[in-house]
Amino acid sequence: MIHGVEHAPRPLRPGLARVLLSIVIIGYLAGVIVAPLSGPPPASDLSRVLLQPFRPLLGGLYLSHGYRFFAPNPGPGHSIRWTITLPDGSSRSGAIPDARVDRPRLLYHRRFMVAEKIAGLVPPPDAPSEVRASARAEWLPLVKGVADNLLRAHGGERVTLEMVEHYLPGPDEVVEGRGGPDLVTPLGTFARRGRLP
């Protein structure tokens, strides 16, 4: 026996209810399996076809997950550096996330996810121009939201944002006390309403 819970020797009698419940269980678990099978990429066309009837279930119950924790490789961390110009002309700067002010740690992590998820859409500055232009259409609306939130929270007039990819040192570099430069990608300067020309 390889069952995982402690049983009392009293199974239910067969019946229509059990058959119907079995169908519901199979349908639910099929959705749970199809979700990570269909994304993130790479994924088969078949899995994407199979996903379609499960979209209401997976969306409605927040089950549409890929479960690729730290896969395929743990990569470098990211943050969004910001500089805000206030109405009196002074400026204020900071980063998302910021371990010094984002407490408790769960709040830090929820803000950290903003940088990490947008970083997944922003190509490096040396990427081909057509790749950067195509990606920009995806990340720009999200970055505008980040800018708007910062302007609201700080009462600012305009904000300049940069994506920072923090250098991930190898073991040898740490042993020798060496490091490397962070990769900085400008995201733009945004005013209270929309992006500045």
């Binding site: 730290f70 490789n73 743990p74 990569g75 470098p76 961390g77 990211h78 943050s79 996330p97 950290f112 923090h166 991930l168 040192p169 190898g170 073991p171 740490v174």
Partner: peptide, 12 residues
């Protein structure tokens, strides 16, 4: 070496 990638990530 993946665990190193997690250990060396300052953001985490």
């Amino acid at each position: 070496t993946a665990i190193w990638g997690a250990a060396a990530n300052v953001q985490y």
